[in-house]
Simulated assay, not measured.
Amino acid sequence: MRRRWDREAAGYDQVFTAAERRMFPGLRRRVCALAEGRTLEIAVGTGLNLEHYPPAVIDGTRPGGFVGVDQSAGMLDVARRRAAGLGLGIDPDADLRRGDAQALDLPDDSFDTVVCTFSLCGIGDDRAALAEMTRVLRPGGLLLLADHVASSVWPLRALQALADVVSVPLAGEHFGRRPMRWVLAQGLAIEEHERTRAGVVEHVAARLPGVRPGADVSR
């Protein structure tokens, strides 16, 4: 999969932004605008989200205030060039780095916001990735997700299930997932949620409970 994304990095923006304009215009901007405090973006890709974060998130006044991770060196090269072109205050080498969403090399409780847009569909173990996202969130932190998911219309879900038979082994692309179920099962508080396009496009803003289960609050 890393080799695949490395190969597709140069032409990714042209292909994906065309689909984005048709399917979910403005959603990327809407989701990223909700980010607050120290922010981690999972599968940052070519950096298409970078220009949509609030200035306070990505102005570079605090080292490591924004971190983007991706498994593909080729995608990160494009993201670093984009960050430089936008004049953002982040350190392209330190703040845009290689990483595995399923096993983040980051400490617990270290980010105020974790963002993942249009990427969980391509991560092998989405539940492991979601668990890692919440692990690195501070209590009270915000999880922001947007993706294509299993449709709310059953004939379309059936077509998605058929598509998965080909797309998963061929390209690692899942059409029948529903991350929202995991978010609800973990007890995160839903602050914003919307499904569009026959339920195929979904975004959610959910907040981690203010105190982790089993935490010592007596100190």
Results as ranks from 00 to 15, higher is better:
residue 99 G to M: 13
residue 65 G to I: 03
residue 26 G to V: 01
residue 205 A to F: 00
residue 204 V to M: 02
residue 117 T to H: 01
residue 119 S to W: 01
residue 19 A to V: 13
residue 11 G to H: 09
residue 217 V to N: 03
residue 161 A to D: 10
residue 87 G to T: 07
residue 16 F to Q: 06
residue 22 R to V: 10
residue 171 A to I: 06
residue 150 A to Y: 10
residue 40 L to H: 03
residue 212 R to E: 04
residue 214 G to D: 06
residue 216 D to I: 02
residue 173 E to Y: 09
residue 34 L to T: 08
residue 195 R to P: 11
residue 184 L to V: 11
residue 204 V to A: 05
residue 82 R to L: 07
residue 186 Q to E: 14
residue 22 R to I: 08
residue 212 R to F: 00
residue 61 T to E: 13
residue 93 D to W: 11
residue 88 L to G: 01
residue 114 V to D: 13
residue 6 D to G: 10
residue 92 P to M: 14
residue 7 R to N: 10
residue 216 D to F: 03
residue 122 G to K: 06
residue 6 D to Q: 10
residue 140 G to Q: 12
residue 121 C to I: 00
residue 70 D to N: 06
residue 1 M to G: 12
residue 195 R to N: 13
residue 183 V to L: 00
residue 33 A to M: 07
residue 70 D to T: 07
residue 110 S to N: 06
residue 198 A to H: 11
residue 63 P to F: 04
residue 123 I to S: 06
residue 188 L to S: 03
residue 4 R to T: 14
residue 146 A to V: 12
residue 3 R to N: 14
residue 166 V to M: 04
residue 100 D to Q: 11
residue 108 D to M: 09
residue 160 Q to D: 10
residue 206 A to F: 06
residue 11 G to C: 00
residue 114 V to L: 15
residue 26 G to W: 01
residue 123 I to F: 02
residue 213 P to D: 09
residue 189 A to R: 15
residue 189 A to W: 05
residue 47 G to F: 00
residue 60 G to K: 14
residue 73 A to V: 01
residue 24 F to T: 07
residue 208 L to M: 05
residue 135 R to T: 12
residue 21 R to P: 00
residue 16 F to R: 03
residue 56 A to E: 15
residue 216 D to N: 08
residue 107 P to W: 07
residue 101 A to F: 06
residue 125 D to G: 04
residue 110 S to W: 10
residue 158 A to H: 10
residue 65 G to D: 11
residue 96 L to I: 15
residue 214 G to C: 08
residue 92 P to C: 15
residue 23 M to C: 11
residue 46 T to S: 14
residue 191 E to R: 05
residue 176 G to L: 06
residue 151 S to P: 04
residue 167 S to P: 08
residue 135 R to W: 14
residue 43 A to I: 04
residue 12 Y to Q: 08
residue 195 R to A: 14
